[in-house]
Design a binder for these strands. Structure first.
Lengths: 137, 137
DNA sequence: ATAGTTTTTGCAACATTATTGCACTTTTTA
DNA sequence: TAAAAAGTGCAATAATGTTGCAAAAACTAT
């Protein structure tokens, strides 16, 4: 029934007001969120520290993942179902719009296979494409 | 003759001690550098502000480019010859070692082609792979 | 080479962002 | 429902990034 509870309980973490509100923000948001976005949000006005710790917990538990950005803002986005605690399989390309600055998860665009030189072990591949998004087109 | 002077003069920016030292650091370093790396470096102990401004100038003039990373460190790496002011063509994959934290430009590994959905315009593609590097193997 | 102009640097102050310890509150467990 | 465990807010502190301005260095043209 309640998607929020479901997500939190599945990870065996306590269900609190803060976590529900922040998680709700992610569920409602079409793209990625920065720490600052969450802090500014009227519906979730907690202590800065709580926001930091909540985001950290969510990342650890595989609920959200952070996205590399060219301009170095810290962005978080919901993980899809195949993420587990401490082991993210975020398998799509991220897009950053040079115009509106929003970051978009291109769920349909798979991360291409990258062949590393001998001696390197691959654990995760992040692909960030920048340009003009469909909204700003 | 002097590679440092050459790089700076080509961009029509003043040749100063600070710029020479920082540029030298990049030339000597096998991978990418974080702001903190430069500040810590004994050979280049300038004011923090100078380091910030120098890096900013270098990026603007196409001498270095910054690398997006999932863990959100700000990394800079030398541009290859085909970069121009305000227009970077950095065409290789970057590797970050989870163990020693160093960033390596995999010059030999080309960035794969990414097909975007309709409506999106691509300008740049950044690929960052993390794992264990050849040194820590 | 040198005087004048332009650019860069360092300092100080300030703003933003992130981290830690501890007491208190809420949630979970049994 | 009480005890235990986990989470939260506050305060203090650290780390990181920015701005204005005066002094210093680099460039330009004689």
């Amino acid at each position: 029934m309640d998607k929020l509870l479901d997500i939190l309980k599945k990870r065996h973490i306590s269900v609190t007001e803060g976590r529900k509100k922040i998680l709700e923000l992610f569920l409602k948001s079409p793209g990625a969120l920065a720490h600052a976005d969450i802090e500014r949000s009227t519906s979730a006005n907690f202590d800065r520290v709580t926001v930091y710790r909540t985001l950290q917990t969510f990342v650890e538990k595989g609920i959200i993942h952070n996205i590399p950005t060219a301009d170095n803002a810290i962005l978080y986005a919901l993980c899809k179902d195949n993420c587990e605690a401490g082991h993210h399989h975020d398998n799509h390309v991220h897009f950053i719009c040079d115009n509106c600055d929003s970051t978009i998860c291109l769920e349909k665009v798979a991360v291409p296979e990258v062949k590393l030189p001998k001696g390197f072990t691959k654990k995760q591949t992040d692909v960030v494409v920048s340009g003009i998004c469909i909204e700003c087109k």
